[in-house]
Design a protein around this nucleic acid. Structure first.
Lengths: 202, 202, 202, 202
DNA sequence: AATGAATGAGGCTTCATTCAT
DNA sequence: GATGAATGAAGCCTCATTCAT
């Protein structure tokens, strides 16, 4: 009988190793040999679990964002108040970036770079950053709409506000990545949300 | 009698060609041959003006941000009112992104990705995105401070506000890059600035 | 009590599977994994019966030609008349090519290619196409000699005639492999043999 | 000014080197490194002249057969008599095989093997052995038809005869490749043609 | 000064073979 | 005996850089 291996677990292990290397060196500069070394396996073994380097990237990408989405939707179920929902949305998003097992903030910028560059290419179907932002904006605007319906928020342009809100958090994260000692991302984010809520509360 | 060549002009020409290709294809996917073709010269000639591909990237990076800084400082001289200064700051920044001779929004994300990744490396001295953001925040916060001093603005945390403002513009630009038909970047930016000014005006 | 396996039978099974895949895809393009799959066993198991891929090829090669030789010799026993013997020789040869359980005409060309290339190498002892042709020519020329002795055939150069006869059948088979709808190999072969017999009969 | 190179000549040089290695080791077993070594250039240089290994194979293939066809058609112009034409056809064909600058009999079998295997694949358009045989048969049958029309030959099945004739020469060449000392290919070929002509002359 | 032909280090991927179970 | 997970040697190809002209 052959060695029994939990293929799923091992694949996840390799993926984790790959993402660590991606985060450290960037996707393009990451060599299959690096991933193999990081995963403690041979180069060839990677191909037992992934078809290609691009395949790894794709799975890493999907993993990050689907994990995030799952976490977001899960967390949203726990509360009912729109203001609380917004707070949760930001909190969970930040947790994904900051408190992850390993540091994958760096990888996100790479994903951005790759996603932006490939916005017209065929990879678009795989790494469709545009769709991800669309979904993310929808998540925000639905909460804002709900708040308006419930009479909590003023009658604001929820689309623009969602875009701006997401933009601000993205941008803050970027600056924070560059120098984590400069400010407490969570606190500044809270300030941002509070200012926003102050501005839109009836 | 040797051929007389304006070395500086030719170098600038090559750099411009390089940035066009960078913008179109991304830094990593850009080959020296592409740059040579775009510049209408031979591959070897590039090395008469640049030491390496990385050297070109470095100069491109510096060129973008020093040009932007020059443009910003120049424009700021023309007005006195802090609110006008903020408006100008946004306006010129956007112009750099949107209305440039050639589209270099894509290149920016590459710069981000490269800058973020190299935050700990020795290239840091060359591609020091952290410093660039620091300078940029300073530019904003000085205007905000000026407004506070002049009694126009409330007594706000100018550091955080600068960071948030820049963040929002960065993030909006990113979303806009991904789908330019989604919104008018200039208009949404105006909305953002107006909301901000409304919130901080005395 | 260890599992009892008829090693010979299983080896033959694997060989058969290998030859099917060889015939379908060519020797070089055939992977050990393909053979294992076709044989319904694990990759590792192949190595319980064969030392290497080359070993399989060698056994396949020998199997084809020794089977053919056995079949030829067996069939020759049933008749006495030289003309009938020639007819049988052709008939059985064609049967080996055409009516085999599985199509192994393709594999033959591979054998040719490999045999020709290795005519000077040490594999020569194993895949000695030259010897095979020698034996085959001998088979023909002995029948022709017998015919001459019996006064049925003219006093011809039996060596050359054997070579030419075999050559013609090989070549026809090749053309037929390339386009089986072009002609009926068996009929054209009959025509060839008839013409020959007409030419050499006393 | 850069080094001036006769690209066509160099490409031909590389192709020649490649064919020598193909002939020696077989197409599949030939590595780009072997070709580079044989051509006295670096591995990378090959790619300045050929797109891929397959491209080299294709050009080699076409070169062999188009050269042969050119030589055949050229030679046929010099004579008028159908019998002479057949003699010339055989003579030039053999010259291509035997007296070539370098030994490319081996490569032919590889081409056969490759052509036969790929008879259903997309390479078919490139290495269409079937078409080559068709053309070759046409060449023969037109001469035979001409002979019939001129009243020199009996009213024979020219298609089958062409196929058989080509087959016999192919097959003889194969046996001769395996052991060149066994017989004089040219003499046996003459014998074959003479027998044939004897059989079909009115 | 300018060039582009030449290169080889280095990357991705394949696959025959091994070996722990 | 049987297996298939693991492997690394080896192959194809790319491309930044060099250098002879």
């Amino acid at each position: 009988m052959p060695k029994i291996v939990d293929k799923k677990a091992k694949k996840a292990e390799i993926l984790k190793a790959a993402m660590e290397v991606f985060a450290r060196n960037g996707v393009v500069k990451t060599k299959m040999a690096n991933i193999a070394l990081a995963a403690g396996i041979g180069k060839g073994t990677i191909y037992e679990y992934f078809r290609s380097k691009e395949d790894i990237f794709e799975e890493a990408f999907n993993s990050v964002f689907s994990n995030m989405e799952t976490a977001l939707l899960e967390a949203l179920k726990t509360v009912d108040d729109p203001e609380q929902k917004l707070k949760i949305l930001i909190d969970v998003s930040l947790t994904c970036f900051i408190d992850s097992d390993y540091d994958f903030t760096g990888i996100i910028v790479d994903f951005w770079a790759e996603g932006v560059r490939n916005k017209d290419a065929e990879i678009l179907k795989i790494i469709d950053l545009n769709k991800i932002y669309k979904d993310y904006r929808k998540l925000f605007s639905e909460i804002l709409d709900e708040g308006i319906q419930k009479g909590i928020f003023k009658n604001i342009d929820t689309f623009s506000l969602s875009a701006i809100l997401i933009a601000a958090f993205d941008g803050l994260t970027l600056q924070w990545i560059l120098n984590r000692h400069l400010f407490d991302l969570r606190k500044v984010s809270d300030v941002l949300l509070d200012s926003l809520l102050n501005g839109i509360r009836k």
